[in-house]
Amino acid sequence: MLLYLIRRILMLVPILILMSMVAFFLIQLPPGDFVTFRIEQLRMSGIEVSDNEAQRLMVQFGLDKPPMARYVWWVSGIVLRGNWGWSLQWNKSVNEILQERIPMTVVISLLALLFSWVVAIPIGIYSATHQYSPMDYVATFLGFIGVATPGFLLALIAAWLLFSQLGFSALGLHSPEYINAPWSTAKFVDLLKHLWLPLFLVGMGNTASTIRVVRNNLLDELNKQYVITARSKGLSEWKLVWKYPVRMAINPLLSTVSWVLPGLVSGTVLIDIVLSLQTIGPVLLRATLAQDMYLAGSVVLLLSALTVIGALIGDVLLVLVDPRIRFGRLGK
């Protein structure tokens, strides 16, 4: 196990190097750069920027150097000094922005994943064990709707309904009076009040697809010989289903842990924008549009890192729950 872990962790290094390159160079691929973009903006709004001034900005952000040199400078900053660079757009250090956004992003996505499992697994099990029953049809139908409905649309509708009917502002994660308040029970309760809607909306697509995965996996498993063997022992149907096929059917879900972060960032940006959640998705979107290269590159790199680490955690969990992998692959 230890050897396996070490091997897997060592494998992360080249992957991360590759990803950092891709992240950094892809973002600079479109013509233009942030300083030019910014100067253009300033000039358009009537502010005169002298060529000297422009030149100074270019040097300050390293734009006068070739991309490779910039990349090395950026990466060595991260590795050696823990400095992720400077965001030209926010005029803040990237570290500061990441510190503000990443924890909330990770928390929301993990909670949304947990939420979707808690909801989807029982429904999927019920659907599979009561195949073609009315409830199964209802669950399947809701599942399709869940997958097909854009989350941001529901977010808009929900936010509007809550506000117009209940006068409750679902935007953000805190009511205005708590935003800058220190942590207290009241602030926590307030957070919970705001949290369920994003969790529901963000988790919805995943809930729907998890129901389908659990239902289909379980339907496959229910006809397997080991289920019949267990039944012919005299085990009750309820205990049997939970002990044997359900475990087989939900183990694969562990490997989805790693998709959650990129999925959240790419798939739910719109929800985050609509509900003005302080997550990293909207930041990345704007940074990319403005060619804020250090910020965008850092976010992409960090998300990739979290993703591969998530994949590693998922695999390790899978190994822990499945003796075939535990003794087979690792035994050697």
């Binding site: 397997k224 010989q225 080991y226 019949i228 063997t229 267990a230 039944r231 012919s232 022992k233 005299g234 002990k243 044997y244 475990r247 087989m248 183990n251 729950v321 499945d322 003796p323 075939r324």
Partner: peptide, 21 residues
């Protein structure tokens, strides 16, 4: 009755046991 009065064995020993237990 199952398992107590009648025991049963099957054709497929490879798949007749749960791999996780």
């Amino acid at each position: 009755i199952r398992g107590k009065q009648i025991g049963m064995i099957f054709q497929e020993p490879m798949t007749a046991l749960s791999p996780l237990h």
